[in-house]
């Protein structure tokens, strides 16, 4: 059925009248123009703007450094009464997390199918790294993988995310081109897109009841960003 359907659909599309097809859209040019029109932003302003936008989405931004972030996270867990924190035991951050003495550290080390009820009902928070952030919209970029599975940033009621301030991009387009998401000539255009890529801007929310905003619809009720900055930027 589906192959007949396929052929019929494609045949109908191919036999439709075609005028002169438009040239390929110049998305790069569009963003270049926008970039040139906007005043250049230094690092401090960029960080400031990211924090402001993230706060608008009710994301809580905490400035930390390379050396103290784990300790800050520990303190936050205490303050937020977190008794179990999901983390990736194979990640670059694992050692620092384990050394920080955080209460109830819980590695995501089995397929979800084996422990769904525990994940859904008995996990207070999840900690993940990020691949960067977007200042224009106050957004985190995550590429979950085998070390940091997808549900860590979704199921626990609190999501802690570590973001390096040097990884802030102006906008989504700059982020995807800057990180070469769709592949480059060297990779013969082969996509580097992972199983799942995510943009996250604040905790989960809905306005489906009388356009009244409510947080914690299905995902995290709180999003806390540990923004890694230099000592003097704290």
């Amino acid at each position: 059925m589906t192959s007949t359907a396929r052929n019929n659909i494609l045949q109908r599309l191919r036999s439709a009248p075609q005028g002169k097809p438009p040239l390929a859209p110049d998305v790069h040019g569009f963003y270049a123009t926008a970039r040139n029109a906007a005043p250049a932003e230094d690092r401090a302003a960029r960080i400031e703007r990211f924090c402001e936008k993230m706060a608008f989405w009710r994301g809580e931004v905490v400035r930390v450094t390379h050396s103290n972030w784990a300790e800050s996270l520990r303190a936050l867990c205490v303050a937020k009464n977190v008794n179990s924190l999901l983390y990736g035991a194979q990640t670059a951050q694992a050692a620092a997390l384990e050394a920080a003495g955080i209460n109830g550290l819980k590695p995501y080390d089995r397929p979800v199918d084996d422990w769904k009820p525990e994940l859904f009902r008995d996990t207070d928070a999840g900690f993940t790294s990020t691949r960067g952030g977007i200042t224009e919209t106050g957004t985190l970029i995550l590429w979950p993988d085998e070390k940091e599975p997808r549900l860590m940033s979704l199921v626990p009621p609190i999501h802690f995310a570590l973001l390096d301030a040097s990884q802030l991009y102006d906008n989504f387009f700059d982020a995807m081109t800057g990180q070469g998401w769709s592949g480059d000539e060297a990779s013969a255009g082969i996509s580097k897109m992972p199983t799942n890529a995510l943009l996250i801007s604040g905790p989960s929310k809905t306005a489906d009841i009388q356009v009244t905003l409510a947080y914690g619809a299905h995902g995290p009720k709180e999003l806390v960003i540990l923004l890694v900055v230099n000592e003097e930027e704290l």
């Binding site: 979800v112 997808r150 199983t195 995510l198 801007s201 989960s204 995902g219």
Partner: peptide, 23 residues
Amino acid sequence: TGQAVTTYFNMISRPRQPGEKDG
């Protein structure tokens, strides 16, 4: 909805790969 961005933008390119724990 007059939002500059939604909370999630979810890009899916594959089913769960060997070694991945969810999806």
